[in-house]
C-alpha cells in the first residue's frame, strides 16, 4: 500500500502539470485587459462635495491625525459665515499607503477612496496632489449627507453676532 502510494505520488504531479499546460492561463494581461475591481476598492483619495455643491471638508485635521504615514496636510481657514474650510489641502501620494483610515476618521464624509489605482509616474512631485486635483464635483458614495444639516449648527452670521451670544474672547489680549 505504501509503495503504491509512493509511486502514485511520484507520477501524479506529472499528469497535473501536463493537464494544466492545456488550460487557459488565469493571468489578466493588465494594460490591455483590466480587472473588474470591487466597489469598495481602496485607491486614489478624493474630496467630495455635499448635495448642495459646497465643499464638505471642514479642515478639522482628523484625517491627517489618523494617517499612519502622515501624507495629508492642510491649512484651516474660516469663511465670512464662520464655517471652516481648507485654505489648502495636500495629499502626498508617494507616501500614501491607501489604508483608508482617513475616510473612517472624516466626520463630514469629505475624504473618500476611489477605485482608480493607476497613479504610477516618473516624477514623484507630480504625485503630490493639491486641493484642486483632489476636489471633485460629486458626492462620492453618499448622495444625501450634509454635515451642517445633521449637526444642526445653523451658522448664518459671523461668530459672536448671533442673538444671545457673547462676543468671542480675544486670546491675544491680557485684559479680563
Amino acid at each position: 500500500m505504501h509503495v503504491i502510494r509512493g509511486i502514485r505520488g511520484t507520477f501524479q504531479p506529472f499528469w497535473v502539470t501536463l493537464r494544466n499546460m492545456f488550460r487557459k492561463p488565469v493571468t489578466i494581461q493588465y494594460p490591455e485587459e483590466k480587472q473588474q475591481l470591487p466597489e469598495r476598492y481602496r485607491a486614489r483619495l478624493i474630496l467630495t462635495r455635499d448635495p448642495d455643491g459646497a465643499e464638505r471638508c471642514v479642515a478639522c485635521h482628523l484625517c491627517s491625525a489618523a494617517c499612519p504615514v502622515d501624507c495629508i496636510s492642510m491649512q484651516a481657514a474660516e469663511a465670512e459665515d464662520g464655517r471652516r474650510y481648507g485654505a489648502w489641502f495636500r495629499i502626498n501620494f508617494t507616501r500614501c499607503i491607501f489604508c483608508g483610515l482617513c475616510t473612517e476618521a472624516c466626520p463630514t464624509l469629505a475624504i473618500q477612496v476611489t477605485a482608480d489605482f493607476e497613479l504610477a509616474g516618473r516624477d514623484p512631485l507630480k504625485l503630490v496632489y493639491e486641493k484642486e486635483d483632489l476636489l471633485v464635483d460629486h458626492c462620492g458614495n453618499n448622495n444625501s449627507y450634509n454635515f451642517y444639516r445633521q449637526s444642526g449648527i445653523g451658522v448664518a452670521a459671523p461668530r459672536g453676532t448671533n442673538p444671545g451670544e457673547t462676543p468671542p474672547a480675544d486670546v491675544k489680549d491680557l485684559m479680563p
Binding site: T17, L18, N20, M21, R23, K24, P25, V26, T27, Q29
Partner: peptide, 10 residues
C-alpha cells in the same frame, strides 16, 4: 514559458 503555462500563467 512552459513553467508558466504549467502554473496557469503566460
Amino acid at each position: 514559458k512552459i513553467l508558466g503555462r504549467m502554473q496557469l500563467r503566460y
